[in-house]
Simulated assay, not measured.
Amino acid sequence: MTADFLIIGGGIAGVSAAARLSHLGRVTLLEAEDHLAHHASGRSAALFEPNYGLAPVVALSQASEDHFHEAGGGVLSPRGLMLVAGAGEDAAFEADARALGLDEIAAADARAMVPLLGPALARAAHADHAWDIDTDRLIQSFLREAKENRAEVVTRARVTGLGRDRGVWRATTAAGEREGRILVNAAGAWVDEVARMAGVRPLGFTPLRRSMARIPAPAGHDLSRWPMLMGAGETWYAKPDAGALIVSPSEEDPSHPHDAWPDDLVLAEGLARYEAMVTTPVTRLLASWAGLRTFAPDRVLVIGPDPSEPSFVWLSGQGGYGFQTSPAASRLAADLLAGRPPALDTGTVAALSPARFV
């Protein structure tokens, strides 16, 4: 049976779109891997920081907050965010604190909150407006909504060919052929490849690798109430995670679409930047991994029908903002496809539209 909406990509973008669009018609979602949220969505830092990113991204994040408090009984838990800087990092520190809406605090107060911070700490800023996202609960909430409206979710269905005939898109996949009248491109790092298969002009997305290491709780500290730490200039970050600590070098190395893995040298350099600010060195890793954060040329999400082919819809370029923007981004896609006025202001809608690249 021909679906109304054929979604390619089973990360948070595709799953949230499936939920929203399932109220408008029949949905089929295609995911290449064995399970949903395998790539970038499965490797997220899972933080909701509504002031993080450029203005259109911030608008999406702020418009998503109510959903986070309601979905699945609520998917947020308190975390907070602390920016730390060493000597000579004043310009980067002040720019980050201003952009993220953080209040400067005394170094002694920062150490009282995070006893791990060492003598290299020169300045610190903090705010409570950052929360951990229960990403699994959020995905399951969207998935449940989609399936309640009879959406079809097909895994192990890598798309190898796309064509359109008589108003219907046909996707050739490892799980057989699927059809849909509207094609939604939510394929993460592969969005330009999907566009090429569909005969639509790629927009120039770039996947950027970001690595992470999971280390034991330093010196046996209880990390449960520590905020996420970020080095000035976003040169590294560290976030408590289930009794351990995730540390990232925050690199943005251009890559190609693939199942990413960490670069050991880059990871070591990032851990060294983290170690310079703390009292306990890293002696072992519990695990390490990497993900691809895929950005449009202007680092803003791309949401809406392609100007040259309105039945081809972009829901792409989530970068590092996929989870925290997903409620509002998927709602905008549904608003546009339903022909109803978007909840977001017209300036933000235009800034997110693929028409900006024409």
Rank of each mutant, 00 (worst) to 15 (best):
D128S: 13
H35G: 07
V358Y: 02
V358W: 03
Q324Y: 00
L223K: 05
A19Y: 07
A55D: 11
R144K: 10
G72C: 09
L60N: 07
A238P: 05
L143C: 05
W131Y: 15
P262I: 05
E31C: 06
F68Y: 12
L352P: 04
A32Q: 04
V266F: 05
I215H: 14
R156P: 00
R214Q: 13
L54Q: 14
L301H: 14
H256S: 13
E49R: 10
I139R: 12
A59L: 03
A125H: 10
H221N: 13
H126R: 13
V200W: 00
D335V: 02
W190Q: 02
S211C: 15
W190K: 11
A32I: 03
D253C: 09
L203M: 10
L116F: 01
E33W: 05
E31H: 03
G72M: 08
N149Y: 01
D90V: 13
A171W: 07
L285V: 04
G73L: 07
V313M: 00
I133A: 08
T206L: 13
D96L: 05
G339V: 05
V58S: 09
P56H: 09
D136A: 08
A130S: 11
R299F: 05
S330D: 02
A276K: 15
D103T: 14
D90I: 08
T160D: 07
A19P: 02
M277R: 03
P50S: 09
R284Y: 00
E65D: 07
D96R: 09
L76P: 14
G270P: 14
T294Y: 08
G270L: 12
G14E: 06
V84D: 08
R214L: 15
V358Q: 12
E309M: 03
I7Y: 02
A59S: 04
A146E: 04
T160K: 09
A328W: 09
E234Q: 14
L352G: 10
R181Y: 00
P281I: 14
R284W: 01
S41P: 03
R209A: 13
M82R: 11
L24R: 04
F68M: 08
A95C: 07
S250I: 03
L83I: 07
R144C: 03
P307D: 02
L336Y: 03
A242H: 01
G53N: 10
A59D: 10
S211G: 12
I133W: 06
G72Y: 05
D264P: 14
M113H: 11
A238V: 01
G304R: 07
V15P: 04
A343F: 03
Y321R: 12
L36E: 07
I215A: 11
R340Q: 12
R181G: 01
G243P: 07
I12Q: 08
A124C: 05
V278D: 05
D298Q: 11
Y321I: 02
A350W: 01
